[in-house]
């Protein structure tokens, strides 16, 4: 049984946000529009968070792409009153859209704020309908429930059905949309329990770390620290 995980090399990430766009299209994440975005109601299964360090001119910007951390000890799963979110046998944290009651306790519980609520009826106004593929899984979620990154569960399922390899180790391997699209090749996906896989090897790198490790949530998304840069005089 694999234990899916992801590694993101921050030295290769250019913060182009192609991962965010690919994720939205792949997973039929609803359109929010500039007004609702400003009001903080847009949904981003994947997002790129900017962190500024230091003061001008000695400033360093770091961009951290954030999918769901798919914790091995997920606080969101613990608190769900109806079992609408769960960690499947392969370690992926999933959401049952037709069971969720919309209490949003899981969103409070997630220390990474990686869960999103459908504050309104999902819509694709005007030409944006072109970005919505009605045939593709997963279907848009109705208003009033919580949704989140699933490591593109539909891709993994299809790959298994068709007997294709999964993970970054194989050139033909099926990977989540954000990994496939990454322009800098910064993202890797695969089985953390296979000691020879790329993600497993990278997760043991001295550069590897996870977000808020001290909370004991055991995330399965690893980051590779950016290298030390010297300011040229």
């Amino acid at each position: 049984m694999p234990r899916w995980g992801m590694v993101i090399d921050l030295d290769k990430c250019t913060a182009c946000q192609a991962c965010t766009v690919a994720c939205r299209v792949e997973n039929n994440v609803s359109f929010a529009g500039p007004d609702e975005y400003r009001r903080g109601r847009a949904i981003f299964w994947n997002t790129v968070v900017g962190v500024m360090e230091g003061e001008f001119p000695e400033v360093r910007a770091e961009y951290i792409p954030m999918p769901c951390m798919h914790c091995d000890n997920p606080p969101c799963v613990k608190v769900c009153p109806v079992g609408a979110t769960y960690r499947d046998a392969e370690g992926v944290v999933k959401q049952l859209y037709d069971r969720c009651i919309g209490c949003r306790l899981c969103m409070q519980a997630c220390p990474y704020n990686r869960r999103y609520f459908n504050w309104q009826v999902p819509e694709w106004p005007g030409t944006f309908t072109a970005y919505r593929n009605p045939d593709r899984e997963p279907q848009p979620r109705p208003k009033g429930i919580v949704e989140k990154c699933t490591f593109c569960e539909q891709r993994l399922r299809k790959a298994r059905e068709e007997g294709r390899p999964i993970g970054s180790d194989d050139a033909e391997g099926v990977v989540p949309a954000c990994v496939e699209t990454c322009t800098g090749g910064a993202r890797y996906f695969g089985d953390l329990d296979n000691p020879d896989s790329i993600v497993s090897r990278l997760s043991r790198s001295p550069r590897a770390y996870r977000l808020q490790e001290e909370l004991g949530t055991e995330p399965k998304v690893y980051y590779l620290r950016p290298g030390q840069w010297e300011k040229e005089s």
């Binding site: 609702e36 009001r39 903080g40 109601r41 847009a42 919309g102 969103m107 704020n113 999103y116 609520f117 459908n118 504050w119 309104q120 009826v121 208003k143 009033g144």
Partner: peptide
């Protein structure tokens, strides 16, 4: 939808 309450992320 609950957007009418003014609630949002986070």
């Amino acid at each position: 939808g609950l957007a009418v309450t003014g609630m949002n992320t986070p």
